[in-house]
Design a protein around this nucleic acid. Structure first.
Lengths: 197, 197
DNA sequence: TACCTTTGTCTAACAATGTTAGATAATATA
DNA sequence: TATATTATCTAACATTGTTAGACAAAGGTA
């Protein structure tokens, strides 16, 4: 009898709806006003129900972060199938990261917030799965490549964070003549050149 | 009669003590458990007193951020007096930034947290006060230099954030063979080389 | 069918938080 | 000394996360 499976499915759905509700509220009013009560209201349940699915609020947020990294990674993988030239691929991956950030600003914020230490080391590890790619590009040994990847991630995230924090467009003192995205591309471009053989 | 001035001074002191109390609690238990009540207790007053000095909690935190940027900037200025070679100076400024971050981790966290948009544009502008320095180093025009400075800041902050988020030492998959600080120096070094004439 | 168990859901409360109004004490001014 | 001002506190408020316990629906068992 399939009752049991359908029930399972419904439960999964509810869980997703909770996560989506949280993201929706965050998008509309910021993370500060994401409350269990509001989430409950959004999914048309009472607050205690949320605790059937998540140990507590922090647990809920962690799950959102985890989902975020999963999504981002799967977009990376997709591109990897398509573009075979390492240098061009790296540029495309960088742009995917950029796009993801600004299409999901709130999500990106908790994913990379300093107030939230890394719980999902697996996600972090996935970033380094592109080791071979960089090795091909630079001709360096494994250890050095690790550092270069790390550098790449820092550069990408640092730049995106800076733009996001300034709530584009940036104030006048910081006026950069190009579009933010072009500035970003310029940085990545210089970086890739500085590491290429 | 100097009563009035002394009072002023006492008020200033109390204000500072509030800010310090907040930082102390943050250092010990994280920002999540910085509450008005705990701050009040720390300075041996009742909660409403805090509101004599700050409009609300957010205002209080903003002031902490502002102070942080002031401190960092003054450390920059100090070094600028001492080191006259542009390239070496930029490396030293980068290291001051690094030192500041890890000697004041909590402070750094709210200063550069994504959840807290820039309120203090003045602080941001100060970063760009080193324009001439970069112009000397690169020989580029003003607009291009702006972008390079921006790049520099992104690189610094991106790297520090990444290390801080990983709660050093980093997990095994991210094992970099060098000390974090040396990795940082390596990045800056490559960057400075990539922009030098 | 009648009974019991499990499961889903809710109501109502708890303690902790930010914040404010109004009382009270301390100090300064006349 | 009497009055005005200032500093501080008490007590409350609404909003949060979270939990215990009530209640009812559904499922299984005899």
């Amino acid at each position: 009898m399939g009752h049991i499976e359908r029930k399972q499915r419904v439960k999964e759905e509810t869980k997703s709806r909770i996560l989506e509700a949280a993201l929706k509220i965050a998008a509309e009013e910021g993370w500060g006003s994401v409350t269990i009560r509001k989430i409950a209201q959004q999914i048309e349940y009472t607050p205690p129900i949320v605790y059937e699915y998540f140990k507590n609020k922090d647990d809920l947020l962690n799950e959102i972060v985890k989902d975020g990294f999963r999504t981002l990674h799967s977009q990376f993988e997709e591109e990897r199938e398509l573009e075979k030239d390492p240098k061009r691929l790296l540029m495309k991956l960088s742009l995917i990261h950029w796009k993801f950030a600004f299409e999901n600003e709130e999500l990106y914020q908790i994913m990379f917030s300093l107030e939230r230490p890394v719980h999902d080391e697996e996600a972090l590890a996935r970033f380094f799965a592109i080791k071979e790619l960089f090795m091909k590009l630079t001709g360096e040994n494994e250890d050095d490549v690790m550092e270069i990847i790390f550098n790449w991630i820092c550069l990408i995230n640092g730049t995106i964070s800076a733009f996001m924090k300034m709530k584009m467009p940036p104030p006048d003192h910081v006026k950069v003549i190009h579009e933010p995205r072009d500035v970003f591309i310029g940085f990545i471009y210089r970086f890739l050149n500085s590491i290429t053989i």
